[in-house]
Amino acid sequence: MRTKKRLKKAGWIAFFVTPALGVVFAFILLPLFMSLFNSLFSWNQLIRSDYTGFRNFERLFFTYPYQERFFNALGNNVKWFVLTMIVQNGAGLLFGYVLSKGIAGSSIYRRIFFIPVLFSIAAVGFLWGLYLRPNGMVNALLQLTGLGEYASAWLGNASTATYSIIIVNIWRWVGFPSLVFLTAINSVPSECTEAAYLDGSSEWQMFRHIVFPLIIPSVTIITILTVIGSLNVFEQVYTMAGLDGAPNYATDTIGTLFYRTAFGSVDSGAPEIGIGSAVAVVIYVMTFGISLFSIMVTRSREVEM
């Protein structure tokens, strides 16, 4: 009787869990292991040939042209991460803090800042691609305000292209960290801030010593999302600079490099499944590793309430 009941329960659990588990297994977990597997073989176009151990990784890290392309792209991903952390998340923290203070117009600001978050990266990329052209709106505005000498081919110039794309992406996304930090700051118990206020702490002291330590969990979340986002940049570069990361690979990222190796090519004009899978494994390892690292760093600074 008991075993029958237990079997029945197991049957129901299987019934509820299997469809979702099947999809997650087939389209998330299986691809992960297949990437690992694929990266250990040499490939003749789409046909797997010999087991080669870590040969694909060696080629990626140490031989021409992969080495040059890979580290160039990685350097750009680092720029994405650093600039996004400082400018976007810094502004997000400032906006979140100011909005939590009930400054006049807060609820309108909050709604408007969040608008671009809902737009597709592709549409935003194309729109700003138009505005940033040499004869586009940005330069026209500079001319109009007498700053014409600063007008530039923002996306055509190797020194400004990556930064322009990053700033467009910050324009689109800054509302998200703002909102997350706003929610976190609002949940800081008012006894904590009130006590500090009565002690005569300044606004900055209050933020630095009371509010910030209490919102570290949301800082962790935003940091991890920034890590994942920065390593997976693709659409932004594709829509504003093209698959090759024009001009002359100045805007290339791991994402666009990965796409070219997997579908077009870096070297021979044919898909390179082996190297492509190696790039994928590198993306996986870095995403997971750096996320874990940032969890550990911020966890150690978390305060118990």
């Binding site: 691809p31 390593l231 997976n232 790039v279 994928a280 993306i283 996986y284 995403t287 997971f288």
Partner: peptide, 14 residues
């Protein structure tokens, strides 16, 4: 936590 975009080659095969 797993970036699905990086899995595009095996997804292609699947």
């Amino acid at each position: 936590m797993l970036p699905l975009k990086a899995a595009v080659i095996p997804l292609f095969q699947i």
